[in-house]
Amino acid sequence: MIVFVRFNSSHGFPVEVDSDTSIFQLKEVVAKRQGVPADQLRVIFAGKELRNDWTVQNCDLDQQSIVHIVQRPWRKGQEMNATGGDDPRNAAGGCEREPQSLTRVDLSSSVLPGDSVGLAVILHTDSRKDSPPAGSPAGRSIYNSFYVYCKGPCQRVQPGKLRVQCSTCRQATLTLTQGPSCWDDVLIPNRMSGECQSPHCPGTSAEFFFKCGAHPTSDKETSVALHLIATNSRNITCITCTDVRSPVLVFQCNSRHVICLDCFHLYCVTRLNDRQFVHDPQLGYSLPCVAGCPNSLIKELHHFRILGEEQYNRYQQYGAEECVLQMGGVLCPRPGCGAGLLPEPDQRKVTCEGGNGLGCGFAFCRECKEAYHEGECSAVFEASGTTTQAYRVDERAAEQARWEAASKETIKKTTKPCPRCHVPVEKNGGCMHMKCPQPQCRLEWCWNCGCEWNRVCMGDHWFDV
Results as ranks from 00 to 15, higher is better:
2 I>W: 07
3 V>G: 02
5 V>P: 03
5 V>W: 02
7 F>D: 03
7 F>G: 03
14 P>C: 03
21 T>R: 03
23 I>M: 07
26 L>P: 01
28 E>C: 07
37 P>S: 10
46 A>Q: 15
46 A>G: 11
46 A>T: 05
49 E>W: 01
51 R>K: 14
55 T>C: 06
60 D>A: 10
61 L>A: 02
62 D>W: 05
65 S>E: 04
70 V>D: 03
73 P>H: 07
75 R>A: 10
82 A>S: 11
82 A>G: 07
83 T>P: 14
91 A>H: 10
91 A>S: 09
99 P>C: 10
101 S>F: 08
102 L>H: 11
104 R>K: 13
105 V>I: 10
111 V>G: 11
112 L>C: 13
117 V>G: 15
122 I>K: 15
130 D>I: 09
132 P>T: 11
136 S>N: 12
136 S>D: 13
138 A>Y: 11
138 A>S: 12
145 S>F: 03
145 S>C: 09
148 V>L: 04
151 K>V: 09
152 G>Y: 15
155 Q>V: 05
157 V>N: 02
160 G>Q: 01
163 R>N: 13
167 S>F: 06
171 Q>I: 06
174 L>R: 02
178 Q>D: 14
181 S>D: 10
184 D>H: 05
186 V>W: 01
188 I>M: 10
189 P>S: 07
190 N>A: 08
193 S>K: 14
194 G>M: 06
198 S>I: 07
200 H>W: 08
203 G>R: 02
214 A>V: 09
219 D>P: 09
226 L>T: 03
231 T>K: 11
231 T>F: 08
237 T>M: 11
239 I>G: 02
239 I>W: 02
241 C>F: 00
249 L>T: 00
250 V>C: 04
252 Q>S: 12
256 R>D: 02
258 V>K: 00
258 V>T: 08
261 L>P: 02
262 D>P: 05
277 F>H: 00
281 P>Y: 06
290 V>C: 09
296 S>I: 00
296 S>T: 03
297 L>P: 01
298 I>V: 07
299 K>F: 04
299 K>I: 05
307 L>Q: 01
313 N>T: 10
317 Q>C: 12
319 G>W: 05
323 C>P: 04
323 C>F: 11
324 V>Y: 08
326 Q>L: 08
327 M>R: 12
328 G>I: 02
333 P>M: 03
334 R>K: 10
336 G>V: 06
339 A>W: 09
339 A>R: 14
341 L>D: 03
347 Q>L: 11
353 E>S: 08
357 G>C: 08
360 C>Q: 03
364 F>K: 03
373 H>N: 02
374 E>V: 07
374 E>G: 05
375 G>T: 07
385 G>T: 08
387 T>G: 10
393 V>G: 05
404 E>D: 12
405 A>H: 10
410 T>G: 08
413 K>V: 15
415 T>G: 07
416 K>M: 12
419 P>A: 04
422 H>T: 13
423 V>D: 12
428 N>H: 11
432 M>V: 04
433 H>E: 05
433 H>N: 06
437 P>I: 05
441 C>V: 02
442 R>L: 06
444 E>I: 05
447 W>G: 03
447 W>N: 05
458 M>L: 15
460 D>I: 12
